[in-house]
Design a protein around this nucleic acid. Structure first.
Lengths: 100, 100, 100, 100
DNA sequence: AACGTTGAAATAGTTC
DNA sequence: GAACTATTTCAACGTT
């Protein structure tokens, strides 16, 4: 049966390939740690915002919206309305439906 | 790995209370398992929906909307617009037609 | 294939597809309600436990641990193979392969 | 029913609070961008590893495990105390006390 | 009763 | 395009 390739160089268990692997893994781990640090920073800023009385949940939405392509937004919105209409509910925005 | 004892099966301090604890824990575990089963069922229905060509992401949104108090929705929407306006962005999202 | 459509049979909002969507949505909503009921039951059991003087926080930890343990064991086993393979050795079955 | 607060200091959308909000949002966005850059770097390293013939899926597993391990150790320690407390004994400090 | 913490649900992204 | 993983979001809980 065909063996799945695990490490590049063949019979050299723990040899050259091992060194290389170790190096790669360590690089990744370092980058990931930096990434985590950034995430912590972001969290802090949110905390600060909250301390100033802002609603962080809404802030997150705003930031997500800004990141997003306006066209996609519109399309999704349209689709949502379509589904709501198919369910007999009026479009969610612009006030409640008259029914019920 | 060595197993850890959950309760001192035979320790004096654990006696009666230990039995009771065990019973409570098991009841909870049973309920949680049922809960997980239900979650799996829900997942299945979504898969079926997808198979019929529906957009499950939108479906989730619809269901979330239906679950939610209309008043809260409106308030949140208003706040979102407020924030967007404070940032100098038009109220891009919020259900109005794309062309304003 | 390759149509980007909104509902399977399109243009028929509130029609056939609408019925189907409605049915799916309602099924999901029903399942979700059962799920919520179960969650409430679990909460009750915790309340009862608390009433008997147990520390629910610890109980949660214990339950979480019991749930995690089997997984961990599997992962550990998988990992063992992983490392072996990473070292250029075949899966542990039967020890070293003849291929050496 | 409590009123929902929109922006902290005043209703002056686009005013003082608006400046503050904008500043916070931009800081977050900048940090997020750095974070994304890091994620891209990580991805690159994986690509490089793959180019050298390594199985990145396994690499991810290994890295995840190395990250989880220290946590597990802490949890294990915490759990020890947990069990002791569940037995009605105080935290393990000093072993069994005479206070029983 | 707000706060932070934590675990689960959902979403996005990636690989095959 | 389907599955898996990683990230993000949301809700519950205890805490102060």
């Amino acid at each position: 049966m065909a063996e799945k390739k695990t490490v590049p160089s063949d019979g050299d268990a723990g040899g050259i390939a091992g060194k290389q692997l170790k190096s790669l893994v360590e690089r990744i781990e370092r980058l990931e740690e930096e990434k985590r640090a950034l995430a912590a920073d972001i969290k802090e800023v949110y905390a600060e915002a909250k301390g100033h009385g802002f609603d962080t949940k809404i802030m997150r939405k705003v930031i997500a919206l800004r990141r997003r392509d306006p066209q996609d937004r519109d399309e999704e919105e349209a689709l949502l309305e379509t589904y709501l209409r198919a369910l007999g509910m009026g479009p969610a925005v612009g006030g409640r439906t008259a029914a019920e």
